[in-house]
Structure formats: structure tokens, C-alpha cells
Amino acid sequence: MVLSVVALVSALGVVLSKNPVTSVLCLIVTFFTIAGHYIMMNAQFLAVVHIIVYAGAIMVLFLYVLMLMNLNAELEPQKRNWLKYAGAISGGALLVVLVAALRDASMPALSTNATDIGLIKNLGMILFKQYVVPFEVSSILFLSAMIGAVVIGKKE
């Protein structure tokens, strides 16, 4: 699947690229491919929200902070090499363990026919019938996060 290969390659690009701005752009590509996966799995609302929130808001925030700090000029200080290898090896070991644990699991195949469970009508019904309280709590969380960001970022 082309989309998955693009996702994995650009995710590797996030980790391996020297320039932080390149990392941000690779991460945006990854987010778009993940949104494509959401659309293929009939989660249209989530795909749209994902693009708006991640590609539209979060990555712009990252880019803004990066440009504000002007980090492209200065290189990342070189870590000792064996620490880098240790990180790569432990991440790869986690990958091997998880794949080996789940390789023999028998799962049903996803059908290709469309379900309407990801449409905004059904999700809205679930959200405002069963999950009203978490919804309100998340709005309070947002408000407190906004105030916290302003207070932290304020010059004293």
C-alpha cells in the first residue's frame, strides 16, 4: 500500500533529518497519509478533524515556534554516538517484540463496503448522548490549557 509506505518513510524522515524544519514538513506528510487511512476506513469526520487540528493548527504552531527560535542556523549538538545507537536498538527491539507477539493473532479482514458510522451525524449523536460530561470536561481542559500557555509564555 503506497499510503503506508509514504507514512513510514516520512515518519523516519522526522526522526533522521538534521534540520528541524524538514522534520516538521515530514510530519505534515505523515499526518496527511494517516488522514488518508482514516478516509479508507470510513472515518470521514475524523479525517477532516485530523487535518484541521494537526496539519492546520499544531504543525503551524510548531513551525511558528521553530521560526521564532531560528534554530536552522545552529546545528543540534552532537550526542555521543553509542547513546544514539542504544536508542535505535531499543526502539527496534520494541518493534521486534510487538510484531513477534502479534504475528500469530487471528483477526478478521476489514470489509471494503462503506459504513456510515464515521459520519458526523452518528458521531454527534453518540457524543451528545453518551459522552456529554467528557465533552464538557474537555472544554474546561482547553480553557485551562489556554490560560496556562498564556501564563507560562508571559514575560515576567
Binding site: 500500500m1 503506508s4 515518519a11 526522526v15 536508542g87 526502539g91 518493534l95 502479534l102
Partner: peptide
């Protein structure tokens, strides 16, 4: 397309993230 395909894809993405946290 089996669900395992997506499981392995997300495992790979997660491990790339873990590697990034450890390496950078």
C-alpha cells in the same frame, strides 16, 4: 485488508516515535 496490517503499521509508527524520543 486484514486488521493486522493496520496493527503492524501503527506498531511501526509507534516504534519510530520511540526511537525519535530516545535518539534526538
Amino acid at each position: 485488508m486484514p486488521v493486522q496490517y493496520y496493527i503492524f503499521l501503527s506498531i511501526a509508527l509507534f516504534c519510530i516515535g520511540v526511537m525519535g524520543v530516545l535518539m534526538r
